[in-house]
Structure formats: structure tokens, C-alpha cells
Design a binder for these strands. Structure first.
Lengths: 164, 164
DNA sequence: GTAAATACTTGAGATACTAAGATAATTAGA
DNA sequence: TCTAATTATCTTAGTATCTCAAGTATTTAC
């Protein structure tokens, strides 16, 4: 159904549904990328962070992902084994492990996003600056709502635990 | 930075980043909801499908989720144990198991979405029908791109397997 | 110079998945 | 109408990844 035939309620519930799809599908996309790279989704998420915030320590990666340091040791072991990262000792604090992304990782990952980037770029070109700004504003405001609601849910948990 | 101070490139990369956040955060939101319900994310996803497409069989649920039937047996076992669903034999084909959602599930789930629904509804109220239609159109087009790109990645996999 | 704190690794146990085979019910063919 | 093949789910064994707690090495603070 074309959007100009929809009344407001229909528009809103359609938008709800599409936003839900956005997240479901990007999970699927990540899984497909991970599979192409021969790693699991957790390791890909970590690899993304490592590439984006390099240099990064194992402990910082644990903080950012919410995984335990024990789990992170496993992540780095696996990523190192397939040659995507390298462990390096921090010379200033030799307890620390700095995770260095290797060029091999970026070289294998980039092309997997090329086609997507092109298609999205084409989509963007059909919108004016003002329209992009509107969409960006909507996304930003949605995100801050969701962030707040996550906090409320997690707060509820602690509150109930505290009651006991 | 306010959007009217951004040039097009800045707008586009900000939008990219926000759309990424949309999906990351809705995963976190789901996890928080699941935790409140005392179940895991997979089981919550299944419970959603069960509620939405009731009555549904175990096999159909396996198809929709991409899990094996063995895994679905475990999902139903766990959901049944906490009283969110009930197994029922299909009288017309007694091999089939129909999964019935129990009122307990909806009663526990609904309130967890109330606050979010209210906040989103307030956000929506600040947009005109035309603006909502624009955002919906963008989301829909993005989704069809992502869907296509997932198919391409998965096709690549098969193609490479076929080469050998 | 020693005690406490920090950063990571290790190992045991828990959970949830897949793959393959078992069981039970239905369908199709001679 | 038997019988074989198919279908739907469950069971079991094996695997992967997580948490938690303890262990090791290094740094910090007194």
C-alpha cells in the first residue's frame, strides 16, 4: 500500500513495524558478514570495536561489550588464530594486553560492505539535505527514548532485587 | 551538533551512525525485556512469534526462526516450564504440536512495553502525516536494501562452496 | 619493601546450539 | 489393505561460548 493512501494510524503502525525490521535485519546482516569471515557474531562485534577504537586493551573491550574478561580472552584467542588481530604487551603497563587489528582483517571486511554502501548511497541521493536532517532527527530521538527505556527496565530489576 | 549546522556529508555519516544504534539498542532492549521475564532472548523471540502467529506448530516456528527442530523442542520446554505456553496435540494430525500462548505471557509482557509505547507515541505526535510518511518510506527502502544485501552475502557463500 | 589493587588467563560448570538417529503418525502405492 | 515412504517432533551426543572463581604477573600505595 502506498503511503499516501494510509491514514495516520496505519502510517504509525507501519513505521513501528519497519523500525522493528531495521533491527532484526541488521542482526541477520551481521551474522551473514560473520559467516563470510569465518567467525561468530560476538567476535565480529569485537573486531568492529577493535578496528574502530584501536589501540584498545582487553579490559576496555570487556567493558564496551559487557562480556567478562574471561570471555574476552577467548574472543582474542579466536581472532588471533585466524589472523585478524595480534596481542601486544603494553610497554608502560605490562599487565595490559593491547589488541592490534591486522591489515588482513580490514582487507577481508571492507569488500563485504561495498555493495551495501553503494546501494545506501544511491538511496540517500534521492533525499534533500532537509529531509535527511528530518530522518536523522527522528532516529536520534528514537534512540534516546530506547536508551532511557533500557535503563528503566534494568533499574526495575535492581529495585526488585533490593526489595528482598 | 544541531543538524542545521551540518553539511551533507556530516548529515549522512551521522544518519549512518544513528541507524546502527537503532539496531544495537533494540537488541539491548530485547535482552532487558527477556531478563525481566526470566527467559533468554531466543525464547522471547519465539514467544513473540507464538503470540503474533498463534496458533502455530513447532515445525513452523523452527522455519520462522531458522532454528533446528531439536532447538525448538528446548525452547518450548523452557517456555512451558515457566508457564508462558502450553503444548497441544493437533487433533487433525497428531504428529504435530501446536504451541498455545497462555494469558500469563501477555500479562507479563505488555506492561514492559507500556512506558516505551507512551514515549514513542509522544515522539510521533510531533510529526505531520507527511513527515511520518517520509520516514516510513526511508525505513522501508533501507530494509529492502539490507534484505537484498543479506541475500547477496549468502549467495556468495553458496557460490564459493559450489566452486570446490 | 610489603600489602593491596589491577589486568589478564585458566579451568570448571552451565546453557543452548547442531546433527543425526529414534519414535510415532500420516500418506501413497501396489 | 498392507507396506513403504514421508513427515513432525523428540532424544542424545558432541560442540561452542558464556560466567564465575581462582591463579599469575605486574603495578601502585603506604
Amino acid at each position: 500500500m502506498s503511503t499516501d493512501l494510509m491514514n495516520r494510524d496505519e502510517l504509525l503502525s507501519a513505521l513501528d513495524q519497519e523500525m522493528r525490521k531495521v533491527s532484526a535485519q541488521s542482526v541477520l546482516f551481521s551474522q551473514a558478514v560473520a559467516e563470510q569471515l569465518g567467525i561468530n557474531s560476538t567476535d565480529l562485534e569485537c573486531l568492529d570495536i577493535i578496528n574502530f577504537s584501536s589501540p584498545i586493551t582487553a579490559g576496555r573491550l570487556a567493558d564496551l561489550t559487557g562480556l567478562t574478561t574471561g570471555a574476552i580472552t577467548g574472543v582474542i584467542d579466536r581472532l588471533e588464530k585466524v589472523g585478524y588481530v595480534r596481542r601486544e604487551r603494553d610497554p608502560n603497563d605490562r599487565r595490559r594486553v593491547i589488541i592490534q587489528p591486522l591489515p588482513e582483517a580490514a582487507q577481508k571486511i571492507s569488500p563485504l560492505f561495498d555493495s551495501m554502501a553503494q546501494a545506501m548511497s544511491k538511496l540517500y541521493s534521492s533525499y534533500s539535505d532537509q529531509e535527511i536532517a528530518l530522518i536523522l532527527d527522528f532516529a536520534t530521538r528514537s534512540n534516546s527514548i530506547v536508551l532511557e527505556e533500557i535503563a528503566k527496565l534494568q533499574g526495575k530489576e535492581e529495585a526488585e532485587a533490593g526489595e528482598n
